[in-house]
Amino acid sequence: MKPKIAIVSASGCRACETTMLDIHYGVSALNRWAEIQFWPFVLGSSMADLERIDHLDVCFFSGAIATGSDRAMAEMLRKKCDRLVAVGACAAYGGMPGLKNLKKPATAEAADRGDLPEELALPEQENRVRALDGVDGIDRVDAVVPGCPAPVNLVWAAVSALVCGGEADARITYAAARLPEEMVRPILSGLGPPPGAVFAGEKAVCATCSRKKEEKRFKAVKRPYQAYESTGRCLLEQGLICQGIATREGCGGLCTGVGVPCRGCYGKPPATFDPGAKMVSAISSTFETEKPAEIQKIADDFVDMTGCFYRYTLPAQCMLMKG
């Protein structure tokens, strides 16, 4: 029997959902392996449909939890499906919508004042934007596909691991996705991915970035237009705030390869505690001065560090913003 799956999107741009359409041979291929029971975006399914479904095998969930209906849908899916998969940075870490947490929502402020207009009350806003696993009613997320948006190869790797079982062409898929050995082995042996598997690498972007690393001596913050590079040298070494050093790999250094500094959409690498703290530590340790005034000067050129270092991860990985 084909596994029953759901594909949903909560608050977000729906790019990850679109990626689902782009996988491999497209949605038709997916249909070959699975029975898509619930997909509002494509099938026009409604919440009422979902309520009617008894059981699902896998749900690919993208988007952040920002509204009451997001939360309700997520909680219901958790109850109904065996494997809940967070697809994309929003579902995985809160994503860009999560930056809203830096400010109290306008609705909440208005409610505080007691002049919440009728039309603003809908849809019901959550006080804090959360990642999928930040919702109270969700005790676990079985797998995560990071990225903004989650890239096709990783999504396909997840789909094939969770939906297609250990089929033959999957081996190529995993090689292409460069997933860590520890994750691939159980999948190929039919055990399925380990609980909480992240469909991405376990090192940081630098490991796959094609740029030349020489020595890290940070002199001053530069904007991309200020640092013209033709040497293929590491962007951070040129003064650009590239977060590839403290961001989980899996993308293959796509952005950095074309000269765009990494923005950290895959979240922190597994062993670290907080991506912002690590960015701070790694960059500032290499400031090329020991004079307090000069250090201060370099440091003051970093603006909006929260929005920069936690662009995709504020609700889930920023320790000071959690809870």
Binding site: G276, V280, S284, S285, T289, E290, F302, T306, C318
Partner: peptide, 15 residues
């Protein structure tokens, strides 16, 4: 530690 302290202080301030 000195180098880190300034950037860290800025981050903390932001938060």
């Amino acid at each position: 530690a000195l180098r880190r302290s300034f950037l860290l202080a800025n981050l903390l301030k932001e938060m």
